[in-house]
């Protein structure tokens, strides 16, 4: 069965990059354009991995993260946080569990590599 990916990202251009990079890869990609939509979609279906933009309208990544982790089905699901800033800029995230960091810009190889790594370690 194909892995289900949820991407929560409110920047339309960024959404375009994700779709382009993941086209033809063995994943089903679902995109949510804001936090509420992302949480709603995550409830409707069990995803295997979530990519989360940190700075979004309405809710910051760490809050969405906390909400997802509260849901029993997402306790152990790997999450990738994406941002134009580097990991050091977000001291609070170092305390969160089972999360990795993806700094923008990234290319296709880096994105696929990160996804593979998360699946690898959570197996």
């Amino acid at each position: 069965m194909m892995k289900e990916l949820l991407i929560i990202e409110d920047d339309l251009e960024m959404q375009g990059f994700y779709k382009d990079m993941l086209r033809g890869e063995p994943f089903t990609v679902t995109v949510a354009s804001n936090a509420e939509e992302g949480i709603k979609k995550a409830k409707e279906k069990q995803f295997n991995l979530v990519i989360l933009d940190i700075l979004m309208e309405g809710m910051t990544g760490d809050r969405i993260f906390a909400l997802l982790r509260k849901d029993a089905r997402y306790k152990a699901v790997p999450i990738i946080m994406a941002s134009a800033l580097d990991e050091k800029s977000y001291r609070c995230f170092q305390a969160l569990g089972n999360v990795s960091f993806l700094e923008k810009p990234f290319n296709k190889e880096r994105l696929l590599g990160e996804i593979a790594k998360r699946f690898e370690t959570t197996k």
Binding site: D11, M14, F17, A84, L85, P105, N107
Partner: peptide, 20 residues
């Protein structure tokens, strides 16, 4: 941090567009 973010976001997207 905010200035860096404001400058890095478009730069990142330009780089990604070129990669695309």
């Amino acid at each position: 941090r905010d200035v860096t973010h404001e400058l890095k976001t478009p730069t990142a997207k330009i780089e990604m567009a070129i990669d695309m």
